[in-house]
Amino acid sequence: MKIGKLITSGVAVIGFSMTMAITTTSIAEAASSVVDEGKSIAFNKKKGNCLACHRIEGGRMAGDIAPPILMMKMRYPNKEVLRAQIWDATASNPDTVMPPFGRHHILSESEVDKVTEFIYGL
């Protein structure tokens, strides 16, 4: 009886930690795939084409129209503000040459989310 209880709870503990482990990896995997997707959207000439203007680590033949994308967490502690810049850069600067990716439907909502995740980690 006692042993049985112990074993069961032991299994429960093992079971619990296994689920934990699985959940943690899948969140990490999902996160890294979102970042990867964000990166390929950002670099794709027909999508974000951010390299036309910005230097970004890992990207080749970048332009030099805009500031390099660096230390985004420092510059944008609030991720929403960063997303807003990508969604519609003209909101903070009407004269900017940065295309309003969300407002002009150059990228979809979820594409803007993914690019934000990628950029935020730089």
Binding site: N49, L51, A52, C53, M61, A62, G63, D64, I65, V97
Partner: peptide, 9 residues
């Protein structure tokens, strides 16, 4: 405004 800058290459 951007004359002289590079857009990509």
């Amino acid at each position: 405004y951007q004359a002289g800058q590079h857009i990509r290459a």
